[in-house]
Simulated assay, not measured.
Amino acid sequence: MENFLYDIPTKVYFGEGQIAHLPEAIKEYGSRVLLCYGSGSIKKIGLYDEIIRLCKDHQIELFELCDIEPNPRVTSVNEGVRLCREHKIDVVLAVGGGSTIDCAKVIASSVDYEGDAWDIVLDKKKIKNVLPIIAVLTLSATGSEMDHGAVISNLETHDKIGVGHPDMAPRYAFEDPTYTYSVSPYQTAAGTADIMSHIMECYFQSTPGTYLVDRFAEALLKTCIHYGPIAWKEPENYEARANLMWASSWAINGLLKYGKSQSWTVHPMEHELSAYYDITHGVGLAILTPNWMSYILKEETLDKFVEYGINVWNIDKNLPKKEIAEKSILATREFFNSLGIASTLKEVGIGEEKLALMAEKAAASLSNAYVPLNKDDVLTIFQNSLV
C-alpha cells in the first residue's frame, strides 16, 4: 500500500427531507446564488419550487442557468461564468445529476479566469480561485456530488476532457433518495453501470497490499449488483434508491484510491465515444468494460480476475482459475444486459468510421494503465465492441 493523505471534505445531508438545511448551508458563503439545472426534471418532481420557496424565505437571491446538457458543454460553462460575473454570485448551486454538478464545478472555477473556460479544462493550473459549490443530487451515477473532478465536452473539437482541483469538491451535498424516484429505468441502468465502472477503475490496479480498499470496492460492487435491478424494477423502492445513491458517492470520492496507484482505462476510451457521438456515458462504459476485461485477461492479471469472480460474483473457488476469470467477465456482461443496456456499439449508432481516430486519442493517456494500451490495443477493443 502506498502513502496517502486522507481528505474527503464534502459535508453530506443524506435522507428524505434534508433539503430543509439548504438555506443554512448557502448562508455560510453568501446570499447570491447561481442555480444550475438541466432539462427541467427538477420542476416535474417539485424540487425546483421547494428550493425557490426555501431561498425566498431566507432572503437568498437566485439567478438561473438551465438546460445544461447530459454531456455538459463548455458553451454552458461560459454562459454560467457570464452570469456569475454579472450578478456577483457568492455560491454556485447545482441541482441535478453529475452533468449539472460537473458544469457547476467548472463555472465556479472559471469566474476569476479572464479567458475561455476551456483553457481551464485543458490546464487546471490556471485555476486560481473556486466559488463555493453546493450540490443537490437527483441521479445516482457519476459521484460528482462528493469528488473534486468534472468532465466537460467541446463539440467544436470533439473533445471530452476531465479536470480536477481540490476546491472543486462541493462544500455540501444533499442526497435525498426520493429525488431519484422519477429516474427512468434506462437512466437507472446507465447510472448503475457508471457507478460500477468507477469502482472497477480503482479495483483493477496492480498496487500490492491493498486488501482493505479492495474489500470496500467489492462491497460497493455487490451493492450495485443487488440494488440496481431492484431500483430498475421498483423505481420508488427507498432502500434500493438510498443504497445506490450512497454507493455512487463512495465509488469516486477518493476512498477506493487511497494507497493505490491510479490510472483509469475504460473511462478515457468511453470519453471518446461520447465526444464524437454524444451517447449516454454509462451505456458506453457497459459496452466497453467486458470487452476490455477479455482483452487484458492474461497470466499477469488472472489472479485479480479470480479474486473478482469469487468475491463479487460468488463463482465457485474450486473451478480452474481461467474458468473463474472467464465466468466473471461473462457475469459482468450478463448483468448489464439484464438491465436492458446495449451490448454493442452498433446498437447505439456507432460504426467503424471513427474508431481509429478515437483509439489514437484515447491511447494518449493509457501508457500507465493497469494494463498499458496503445492505439492498436484500443482499436481492437473498439472493434470487438462493435457487434
Rank of each mutant, 00 (worst) to 15 (best):
K124F: 08
K124M: 09
K125A: 12
K126N: 11
K128M: 00
K128F: 04
N129G: 04
P132C: 00
P132N: 03
P132E: 02
P132Q: 02
P132V: 01
P132T: 01
I133T: 12
I133K: 06
I133Y: 08
I134Y: 07
I134S: 08
A135Q: 14
L137S: 10
L137A: 07
L139K: 13
L139M: 12
S140Q: 08
S140T: 09
G143F: 04
E145N: 08
E145T: 09
E145L: 02
M146E: 10
H148S: 05
H148F: 03
H148C: 04
A150E: 07
V151W: 08
V151T: 06
V151E: 08
I152M: 06
N154M: 02
L155I: 15
E156M: 12
K160G: 10
I161T: 14
I161Y: 14
G162E: 14
V163Y: 06
G164Y: 10
G164I: 13
M168D: 02
Y172D: 13
F174H: 12
F174K: 10
F174N: 11
D176Y: 07
T178Y: 05
Y179M: 01
T180I: 01
T180E: 04
Y181H: 06
S182V: 00
S184Y: 05
S184F: 03
Y186R: 09
Y186L: 09
Q187H: 05
